[in-house]
Amino acid sequence: MALLQINQLTKAFGGVQALGGVDFHIDEGTIVSVIGPNGAGKTSFFNVISGLFPPDSGEILFDGDNLAHHQPNEITRRGIARTFQNVRLFPNLTVLENVMVGQHCRTKEGMWGTILQTKAQREEEKRIEENAKEVLSFFGSRLAGYRYDQPAFVLSYANRRRLEIARAMATEPRLLLLDEPTAGMNPRETVELTELIGELRDERGLTVVVIEHDMKVVEHVSDRVVVLDHGVKIAEGDYESVSTNDDVIEAYLGRPAEAG
């Protein structure tokens, strides 16, 4: 069975049909890229899955449970984490704190434990910190050492993107939704991140959905590619078949008649 199975998902904003009945599925341990021209509904697709907007209709079956109309924090707790297209960190928290916050839904100590400084609470705090450091070590030395205590806003753009991924990883997800992870990165950083996305699957066993514009990245990481246009899935398959699909070319370049 697919880890995430989406059936006939629709969402409209006012008169604009952002998602017009999308079917989608992803198997555990695979990477699926979602591509499509600007305004195709890719980010809306993520927003609906992660619960930021409730869908108008349709099912979001994650591991067999329908998550439509759940609160975002509940969805994250079930194991779907995401990043944002326009990097949204907590800029004034430190790098380490940003990631530690991600552990929130995997920990449970409340006010009493905190006030009384119970053993469980102290151990949990220690565990949160260790886990956060472990997640950050995924990015080598870039976000480690002296970086821990720097506020997130001093980071370079690429590091912010990395930190956002680290924060999402800290929620210990099964499914990771990455919204244009390489946007704004230089070619070298892009190559590096592409490899990291592969490692997320191969070493960490995560299932990943990527929205991406950079076709080289898509080609490199994807097990399967899904193409959206005007809120409708117009093609899916491996990179080869999708990239030669007439509908896809048309969606990106326009109809020959219009072009001419």
């Binding site: 619960g51 609160q71 924090n73 960190l89 929620t171």
Partner: peptide, 16 residues
């Protein structure tokens, strides 16, 4: 602190 900085994101990373 996370909630104060960005409520939507706090919610999206699993904070109720």
């Amino acid at each position: 602190a996370a909630m104060r900085e960005d409520e939507d994101v706090a919610e999206a990373i699993g904070i109720s």
